[in-house]
Structures are given as C-alpha cells and as structure tokens.
Design a protein around this nucleic acid. Sequence first.
DNA 1: GCCATCTATTCCGTATATCGGAAGCTTTTG
DNA 2: CAAAAGCTTCCGATATACGGAATAGATGGC
Lengths: 273, 273
Amino acid sequence: MAGDDAGAKSSLQRGLAILRLLASTNDGGARLTDIARALELTPPTVHRLLKTLVEEGMVEPDRTTKRYRLGIDLFALAAQAGNPANLRDICRPILLRLSATLRDSIFLLVRSGFDAVCLDRSEGPFPIRSFTGDVGGRVTLGVGQGSLAILAFLHQEEREEVIRFNLPRMQGVGIIDEVYLRTEIARVRDLGYASRSTGLLPGMSGVAVPVLDRDGHAVAALSVGTISERLNEERLPVVVDILKREAASVSRQLNPFDPVLRRPAAVLGGGSA
Amino acid sequence: MAGDDAGAKSSLQRGLAILRLLASTNDGGARLTDIARALELTPPTVHRLLKTLVEEGMVEPDRTTKRYRLGIDLFALAAQAGNPANLRDICRPILLRLSATLRDSIFLLVRSGFDAVCLDRSEGPFPIRSFTGDVGGRVTLGVGQGSLAILAFLHQEEREEVIRFNLPRMQGVGIIDEVYLRTEIARVRDLGYASRSTGLLPGMSGVAVPVLDRDGHAVAALSVGTISERLNEERLPVVVDILKREAASVSRQLNPFDPVLRRPAAVLGGGSA
DNA sequence: GCCATCTATTCCGTATATCGGAAGCTTTTG
DNA sequence: CAAAAGCTTCCGATATACGGAATAGATGGC
C-alpha cells in the first residue's frame, strides 16, 4: 500500500539508529534516556539494544558518566569499510606527498549514492574552508570541484540519475539551473579536471581530477582545496598536471591486472611488466 | 555455570555478524550464499538482513559481481564520530611525523576486549610483517610489543582477567608459559616500553610505549614495527625516547582537564597554562 | 542527613517481527 | 541450450522484541 514509512521498524534498524545517534554526539556520548527520547523508543528497549551493542563491542559504556559512546570494534569495522580495493591505503602516501609538495590541503573523495564522501584528507599549511569538511564528511554530488569531477565521469546513465535527483538538492548552493550544471560537466569532461572557482566559498578555490577505473569512469577524485590566490593562471596548470599524474598512478594500482585478459591494464606510462 | 552460547540470537546480532564477516573479507566482499553458509543462516534471512543493511547504507551491493561489501556510510559514521576522545585524530599527525622521522612503520593500537586493535598505521619505507596487520586488525592482548605495552599498563584487576583469558589463546604463538608472560609484563612496566624482539616473526622487531590516561593506565599504544637491524642498541634508546615523548603528548591532549579539579591534568613537561 | 526526582534496570504478558521451507525467477556454468 | 547454482518472494508458525509497571540506584535540593 501507501509507500515507505520513514519510521524504523526492525531491531536491526533501531540498533543502527543508536549507532548513528552516538556518532553524531561528538565524543561526549549519550545517556540511555537521551537516546530513548531522541529515537522515540522506550527506555527498556534502548536498554536491551544497548546491552547487545555493548556485548558486540560496538558501543562502550562509560561507567562513571553513565554515557554510551561508539566502541572500538565499530571503528575497527569501519576502518575496513569504505576502502574499495584499498583505495584509501593506496592514496594515503599520495595525499601526503601532494600536500607536502603543493603545500595545500588535499582531499580524497569517493561517491556514495548521491553524495561524495571524504575518504581522507591531508592538511596543508593554509587554513581552508570546504564543502567536504573532514574525513567522513558528505557533500551533494556535483557541488564543489572534487564532487563535480566524480559526477562528470560517471556512466552517462548514472550521471543522469544523479543529476535528476540532485538538482533540487542543489538549490541555494549556488548551482541554480540544469543548463549551468551540464555546461560545467561538459567542461570538466573536456579538460579532464574541475577547477572553476565557484565563488560559493569566498576566497576559496580548488582543483580536482577524477580517478578512473579501466572503463574511464570515476571511482574517486583527488582534490586540492586552497585560497584563490594560490590557484592563479600560472600555478593552476602545474597543479593540474601533478594531480593528473598522481590520479593515473592510483588508477594503475587500482587496476593492476585486467580481470579478463590477465595482463596489466592499459594505462598511460607503462610501468614494469 | 554453563556459560554463554556463542551463537548469535537477535537479528541485531545477526546483522552485526554480517558486517563483521564483510569486514573480514578484505575488499572482495561476499555473496549472499557465502554469508549464509559462514553464519549458518538461511538465504532468505540473510537476504532480508542485507536488504536492511543496504537501505541503511551500511552495506553496498556490487550489482555486477553480486557481492556485498561494507558501505562507505559505515566508514563515514565512524570517521565523523568523536573517537574515544578523538584518539585517532589526535594521533594521526603524530603517526605521520613519527614514520617520517624514523622512517619506520608506526602503529596505533587500542584495547578491545581481550584483543588489541590497530586503529591506525602509517607506513614506513621498509616492508614489514606484523601481528597487528592493517587498520582494524586484531591481535591477542599480550602478543607483540604494542599489545604487550597495553596489557602491562592495564588496571591490575583487568590485567589479571586478560591474562587468565588469553593464556590459552597464546599457545603456539611463542609465549608459552605464564611465568614468562608475567616476567615480560613486569619488565615492560619497569622500563616503560616493550621492545624485546620476540623472535616470533623472524627478522622483525618492534618497540612500543603505552599511551596512559590520567590514572596511569593504558588506553592505547604507539608502536614501531621494523626490521631487527634497525633496532640495535644504539638506535633503540633514541626511538624509545621519541615514542615516549609523543605518547606523553597524546596523553596531554586526551586529558586536557582534570574532570574533578577542572585544571590541566598532571603530565610531564608542562606546556602552556 | 533525608527526602524528592530523575535515571537505569528487571520482570513478564502480549503482539509482532523474524524465521525458514517451498517455490518462482534469474544468472552462471558446462 | 540445458542444468545448476544463486537470488528473491511468499506465507504460516513461532520465537523475539516490545513496553508498561515496578524496583533499584543515582543525583540534587533543602
């Protein structure tokens, strides 16, 4: 009948809701009754769920403060997640190298549904503001350079779906109409990078290149966030060049062997056999 | 008393079991029936649980390969959360600095039940082998330097409990008898670091220091893993010194204020007021 | 130091969500 | 192209999770 209730039903959903709630209460944790209130559950229910979660190591009770916070097991679990093909591990050294070389902040973004998620970041010396925020931060796919770089290099089909879904979500974030977005996407596909200062974050600017799979579709983006002055006409091409080189390196590591032909995938700059 | 059934019961537990299973299948993911078999559940059950987990963003299906893997949302969940006092965030730059300075691999370990879990690691240029493995990897508390450093600095009570529980688990990992383990613990407590090359991993060696809370009990360990030659009599004290300094710095950041007295906790090397 | 209030925990009958067998449908394999 | 394996849907029986109520414990005010 009439579609989805947004309301959580299964105990699994409730348990996950608790985890999410605890994640959002930065570091302080939450008490049982707080959780119950926030989730509109009764204290006994929360108590039971928490008990299970504690037993499973997902939640840790602070005996003294009577607060609950996320357990280490969850962090261990999550560390394994969001690491398709060890993307994060592969990119970590690259991020470090890039931020050291460029002296700017570097972001690694991946797609998650209709968002881009920051998988990792390496801080540069310049304080910056970004849509992406810290590791784990999300941004609507298409907003911001890294995010846009991913969107531009999705399968056409998926891209259309995302555009359709995200256009309404972009209202009030500067990208007003579809035509503009499509123009931008075309430009990014053409140039191979996203850089146009959107002016959404005053004084801030960025460049991003997609990390492509063997079919030429984006699996991630490497993005530089910095202050506008540091991305002038002179420096931009240099940065883009470096980024592209690193992105290609990542691609090579991601697709070491063609799964069908059992030989190194075709990427530019042939390495060792 | 006849103890706990290991068997999962509630659907929440089953769901978490799936997540753990997916975490253990490094990056490749698992198919529905594989999960069913591994967890001794029926396919319909797994199907329903997976459906929920996918809806909740904790698991991502790979349409093409019919495999399920942990979702980025799970990663984002944990990444955005305040860790136990942001331990990981605090330590990240330290790990990077250490691995850059020492040119060795650095591990951040925390206790989880009767195990130590690798919360983070920063790769050095020397390829190493370790018990800990990658981020999220677990090792029996007491096996390996980092793990031992934590065990040695637990509450006496907890320490005894862990020793009791873990001794049987250590069979065949080199630490054979209780006396030896206790001797090692005493030595670590005395020196303030764990370093003895256990010889369990030929050619590999390590040093670790505990990160202490305000009561002097371990909350984590910073650990260096490297090849034996790089931890000779000459270099070892230097490395230990650096590690201790960093561990103290972490402690200070973890316990910025004494919760009772509302003033900076007492740690060595008074910083700014 | 005592009482009032809020929170955490236990108990238990009820109701509902979960389970798994069976069968239909899809994809992979030979 | 046929067979097998895997995935998904359906549905009735049952076990599991739920929440009200009462107890125990903590916190704070007086």
